[in-house]
Amino acid sequence: MKAAVVVFPGSNCDRDCYWASHNIAGIDTVFLWHKERYIPPVDLVILPGGFSYGDYLRAGAIARVSPIMGAIRDFAASGGLVLGICNGFQILTESGLLPGVLVRNKSLSFLCQYVYIRVERNDTPFTRGYNVGDVLRLPIAHNEGNFFAPPDMLDEIERKKLVLFRYCDSNGNITEESNPNGSMNSIAGIINENGNILGMMPHPERASELILGSRDGLGIFESLKEGYA
């Protein structure tokens, strides 16, 4: 399997994603500059966290019109795998590649902390290594991670089972207290209908080694890799 990590100006989790994908999960990974208009022959494109173009307008709002995003649209349309983490998730919703939007945290402040998320499906290329109901401990670090969708869209998301991860407590219960940012239906990560685009706010790349306190996120990279073994 081959992967590319997109580097926007202001991306700052690009090296972390590269490290987890390449050095830890053993996926052959390259960096991909935002001014490129073509995707090299890879199976997976990772949109990393950060503050693309400074995010002074709205998170992900400028990245969505960058040259590389046109290429990523085509890549995804032809079935290529796309993983957007944190700012990458924001870019995917801004681009319309995933439904909904990510608005400011309910607390109105930046939140960096460990959260628990529950795996809702394991019939996707991103989660085949997990069991449904598995509880993962991953860090979040964001200002705008509060998932919002109008009622109709939210219904559709649920009906089509597009929710891949939900915030939960350590036992897997979905509660008000375990929802860190006010996301509707405790949504932490969703996929598109075709199942090849995942956006998630928690950072699996920061939870891929025991020395960092959790390796619960490594399963995402390993799931992807196994699918291409």
Partner: peptide, 27 residues
């Protein structure tokens, strides 16, 4: 205070803030 700071970016932070000293691994 600390939860308003991203203290894990760069994936090196081994001991998080709040204790005596922070510990970082050097890859």
């Amino acid at each position: 205070v600390f939860r308003q700071y991203d203290h894990q970016i760069m994936s090196n932070t081994v001991v998080l803030p709040g204790g005596d000293a922070a510990v970082l691994r050097i890859k």
